[in-house]
Design a protein around this nucleic acid. Structure first.
Lengths: 193, 193
DNA sequence: TTGCCAAGTCAACAGGTGTTGATTTAATTT
DNA sequence: AAATTAAATCAACACCTGTTGACTTGGCAA
């Protein structure tokens, strides 16, 4: 019987991707300060030293994780401000759509490490440039930035409450469609208030 | 925070309070994992060992901080569900009222350390028992818990966006009264959606 | 096969963490 | 004034953190 189940070829880009994937999963569940490089290296099946070697350190790794998923199409789907509430509602409650789920994961990662000086700086830059910017532009109008901030706040708040504080009162609402409509209404209110 | 340099009496309850106050300020600005006991001890002007001695360790200190401000009157002021949106709006935008500010600080502390296994457990318990519980009871009705969760989400989201991510788009709205009304409308929508 | 260089590993560092036992200091009591 | 007791300090502990230089290994090319 063969001892090695996985043939471990020496492939730089492959191990780099493995580290990146492992880091993504770790940062999704723990804070920047909470995860150790040895944890990530263990998950990826590589030595710790490789991380600092490939990404220049922990900070560089985190930056690579949050900048990995391409950002410009973060809000590509909702073309008009009218379909924005519906889109955000789907983003929040839908867990089937893989694309939406991936975006929500990015929000959770941002949320988890927003405190912590080193990661926070990266996140603030990301939030302002890749989320708040496009949102403000899409909304437009006089109080566009204010409303974009409100939407982001609701988005983040839902993420905090359900994923980090794990008080998912939304799950009691067995009807997904009804729950989606509820959130659509809330997002619409944030735009019209 | 001011320290008494002149006379340093040996007073157990006084230094205990000093440690508690220093810890409050630290946890308000950094995460549980981010602050070190030596930082807190330095601010309080005492030795590190006293913390573990008085509070039984870092975890005990954190628990003492979040349980210090008495909780039962957390939502004592809003007696009816009708005045709840107005109250929450004031809680969010008002920065003059010392009592409200103190409550908001508690939310920020919870927010900052919600990730981090040890502190998270304490916070989840606190959020469920001292915030979500009274809110659900106050709101009542069929979907009371769902709506309480939504309100908490907005509350937390605003805290995240403005205090942790430091993108305070609300500050652009120079008229405080108008901003308050905006939030009152949003909270009301969360209750009626 | 023989070099060769990148890919990967190893071990150790310097610094920081929370915690604890022994010790010293100050205030109160006898 | 001496004894006592709580309050505060000191020093060290064992452990964990990210990082780095030296080392070994693997795979391709000449």
């Amino acid at each position: 019987m063969k001892r090695e189940i996985i043939i471990k070829r020496r492939d730089a880009v492959a191990t780099r991707a493995a580290i990146l994937a492992a880091a993504h999963q770790r940062f999704l569940r723990e804070s920047y300060d909470g995860v150790g490089l040895r944890d990530i290296a263990g998950d990826a099946g590589v030595d710790v030293a490789l991380i600092s070697r490939y990404f220049g350190g922990k900070e560089g790794l985190f930056r690579a994780v949050v900048q990995h998923d391409d950002k410009p199409d973060m809000f590509r789907e909702p073309k008009s401000v009218e379909e924005l509430p519906g889109f955000l509602a789907k983003l929040v409650v839908e867990d089937a759509d893989e694309n939406l789920q991936q975006r929500m994961e990015m929000f959770i990662i941002m949320l988890r490490s927003a405190s912590s000086p080193k990661a926070g700086e990266i996140i603030r830059e990301l939030a302002h440039h890749d989320v708040l910017g496009p949102l403000t532009e899409l909304i437009g109008g006089e109080h566009g930035e204010l409303r974009a901030t409100m939407l982001l706040a609701i988005l983040m708040g839902v993420g905090v409450v359900r994923t980090i504080m794990m008080v998912d009162g939304f799950a009691d609402d067995d009807d997904i469609a009804e729950c989606t409509e509820r959130f659509r209404c809330l997002f619409a209110a944030a735009l019209t208030c």
